[in-house]
Measured scan of single mutants.
Amino acid sequence: KRPMNAFMVWSRGQRRKMAQENPKMHNSEISKRLGAEWKLLSETEKRPFIDEAKRLRALHMKEHPDYK
């Protein structure tokens, strides 16, 4: 399984929150809205998620050196 990218790290928490606030909303609609919100974030707002994704990628490479 591939490590999560920055968007996936961010959206994991956001998706849960949005699903709780809008229980009838379909997952595909939640995904569209999350994608639009992510695009509006500044580089500074994205930075912690980018850093976490880098950390996860490095850990994955260490644990699975033969993974392509």
Rank of each mutant, 00 (worst) to 15 (best):
K62N: 11
D66R: 07
P65V: 11
R15L: 09
E63I: 04
G13C: 10
R47S: 08
V9L: 15
I50W: 06
N5Y: 02
K54R: 11
P23R: 01
E63W: 04
S28P: 05
D66L: 06
E63N: 14
F7D: 01
G13R: 04
A58F: 09
R57S: 14
M25Q: 07
R12W: 13
M4W: 07
S42H: 01
K54D: 14
E37N: 06
T44R: 08
G35N: 11
K54S: 09
W10S: 03
H26W: 03
R55C: 06
P23L: 03
N27R: 06
A53Q: 02
K32I: 08
A19I: 13
S31W: 10
P23W: 01
A19D: 06
S31N: 14
A6V: 00
R47F: 06
M8G: 09
A19W: 06
M8C: 07
K39P: 02
W10F: 07
N27Q: 12
K24W: 10
E21H: 07
P48D: 00
S11K: 00
N22F: 09
M18Q: 05
M25I: 09
A36R: 08
S11R: 00
R57I: 06
I30C: 05
S31E: 15
I50Y: 15
R16Q: 15
R2V: 13
P65H: 11
L40V: 10
Y67W: 08
E63K: 10
I50F: 13
D66V: 08
H64T: 14
E21R: 03
I30V: 06
N5C: 10
L59F: 11
P23E: 04
L56H: 06
H60G: 14
F49W: 07
M18D: 03
N5Q: 04
E52C: 03
F7C: 00
A6R: 00
E43G: 05
S11Y: 04
R12Y: 09
I30R: 01
I50V: 11
I30A: 04
E21N: 07
K24E: 15
K39N: 09
N5E: 09
I30L: 07
N27F: 09
M4Q: 07
L34M: 04
E37H: 05
M18N: 00
A6L: 00
K46N: 01
T44Q: 09
Q14G: 04
F7S: 01
N5D: 15
L40Y: 03
F7G: 00
E63P: 08
A19G: 06
L59I: 11
E21A: 05
S11Q: 07
N27Y: 09
D66M: 10
K62R: 10
R47K: 09
L41D: 05
P3H: 06
Q14Y: 02
M25F: 07
R47P: 02
S28I: 05
G13H: 10
M4E: 11
K17E: 07
E21W: 03
K39V: 09
P65W: 10
A36W: 07
I50E: 15
R47L: 09
M25Y: 03
Q20I: 08
E21D: 07
G35L: 14
L41M: 12
E21Y: 00
W10E: 04
S11T: 04
L59H: 10
S31Q: 12
K54P: 01
E21P: 00
L56C: 09
G13P: 12
A36K: 14
R2G: 15
K17L: 12
T44V: 12
P3F: 05
H64F: 09
E37C: 02
K54C: 10
R57H: 08
Q20C: 08
P48K: 05
T44F: 08
A58E: 10
M25L: 10
K17Y: 08
D66W: 02
K68Y: 07
K68P: 03
S42K: 03
P48R: 02
L41A: 01
H64Y: 10
K62I: 12
V9C: 12
W38V: 01
P23Y: 00
G13T: 13
K46R: 09
E29A: 04
N22P: 01
K54E: 14
K46D: 00
R55A: 08
P3Q: 14
V9Q: 03
R15H: 11
E29G: 03
L41K: 08
A19N: 15
K24N: 11
R57G: 11
R57L: 09
L56Y: 05
Y67S: 13
E45V: 04
M25V: 06
M8N: 12
K39A: 14
Q14D: 02
M8P: 00
K17N: 09
P3V: 09
M8H: 09
A19V: 12
N22R: 03
N5I: 05
E43Q: 09
R16L: 14
A6I: 06
A53T: 02
P23A: 04
H26S: 15
A19H: 07
E37L: 07
R12L: 14
M18V: 06
M8Y: 10
Q20R: 07
I50N: 04
K62G: 12
N5K: 02
L40F: 04
R15C: 04
W38M: 00
H26E: 14
Q20Y: 09
E29K: 01
Q14S: 05
R15A: 13
K46G: 00
L41R: 01
S42N: 08
R55H: 07
M25N: 03
E52N: 00
R57C: 10
R15F: 11
A58T: 11
K62Q: 14
P23C: 05
A53S: 05
N27P: 12
R12D: 14
G35H: 08
H26V: 07
L40D: 09
W38F: 02
K1W: 10
E37T: 06
K17H: 06
K17Q: 09
V9W: 00
F49K: 01
A58G: 11
H26K: 14
P48L: 00
K17G: 04
M18P: 00
A19M: 14
K54H: 08
M18E: 04
S31I: 08
R15W: 11
K39I: 06
A58M: 12
P65F: 10
P65D: 14
L40I: 07
E21F: 03
W38A: 02
K17C: 03
M4I: 14
R57T: 12
Q14R: 11
A36G: 01
S31F: 11
D66G: 10
Q14H: 06
S31D: 15
T44I: 11
G35W: 14
K1I: 03
I50Q: 10
P48H: 03
K68N: 15
H64I: 12
E43P: 11
N27I: 05
R12A: 15
W10V: 00
E52K: 00
Y67F: 09
R16C: 14
K24L: 12
L34H: 01
A36L: 06
K32N: 09
S28V: 10
L41V: 04
K17P: 04
P65A: 13
P65L: 09
M4N: 08
R57F: 03
L56A: 07
R12G: 12
M61Q: 14
L34R: 01
R12P: 04
K54T: 08
P65C: 12
M8I: 11
